[in-house]
Design a protein around this nucleic acid. Structure first.
Lengths: 144, 144
DNA sequence: GATATTTGTATCGTGCACGATATAAGTGAT
DNA sequence: ATCACTTATATCGTGCACGATACAAATATC
């Protein structure tokens, strides 16, 4: 972007808008998700499970790029909310299989309007959203 | 992006790469910042102060889009690390003025190589970085 | 087949982030 | 001056995120 003296200016750093945008988008979800009594990371877990039920904890960890020490308590809270079940795998006793409960499955219908609702909050055109999407994935894949 | 059935797919959501990219970039900073005994939000506060010393807590809050209940303990920890001073404003006894200590000022020199070092970790071209930067700011400004 | 290594999950400690709420200082209207 | 109102910061409680570490099940090695 720039070199030398200005490199430490907040306005010249990519890190800052990334950090701010991420928190801001999470914040946009908050009022929508609180109606479903969900937090943002819990919603991400459900997105995984709505696509494919019966997933190992370690597979969720890979998909969401989260570690076991983050996921374990998060999933335990979701279990307390009766959204998911945590069962040991019969094939490998070390693995925990996460599956949706009836309540977790039913929640999908209630969540279907969320993406659209969020799209309205963020004033990006379809082209811009796609561009941003691609750049972010390039960034994610570039740094391992 | 897409409508109907697929809208809840993780891979179709802008929120997820944003969230992941932000955590990933923070993680890239971590080894660099730990050498200076700093966390990422602490580094952001220093970026603000290196640009302009003697800033009110509330002004830092606006610049970093953080709330007082996040900043207060964060700044107290930085005070314990002898990086900053927290003094009540003489003009308005409600305000806290944050200023750099000698140690805080000296740290700027040690941090100057960080932006460049991070640029190497993230495999984005200058054009892509600028594009991403602009899209993120558009997003931030669009949603208030 | 006892031992070493790897893998999957959990535990512990620290530091954000933020909603809700409290408190004290300043401001304004009566 | 009094009382409502606003503003600046702090406190409290909850939920991530992650480094370090522990531990048990599975696998590999000898």
């Amino acid at each position: 972007m720039t070199n030398g003296e200005d490199s430490l200016k907040l306005s010249n750093q990519l890190c800052f808008p990334l950090y701010t945008a991420s928190r801001l988008v999470t914040k946009c979800y908050q009022p929508l998700l609180s109606k479903l009594d969900l937090t943002y990371p819990q919603y991400l877990v459900l997105l995984v499970l709505w696509e494919e039920d019966q997933v190992r904890l370690s597979d969720i960890a890979v998909k969401l790029q989260l570690q076991s020490n983050t996921l374990t308590p998060l999933l335990k809270r979701m279990e307390e909310l009766k959204l998911i079940k945590r069962l040991k795998s019969s094939e490998d006793e070390r693995s925990i299989i996460i599956s949706l409960t009836e309540k977790g499955i039913a929640l999908k219908k209630e969540a279907e309007w969320i993406p659209e609702s969020l799209g309205e909050k963020l004033n990006l055109s379809a082209v811009e959203a796609k561009q941003l999407y691609q750049l972010l994935y390039k960034l994610i894949n570039s740094a391992e």
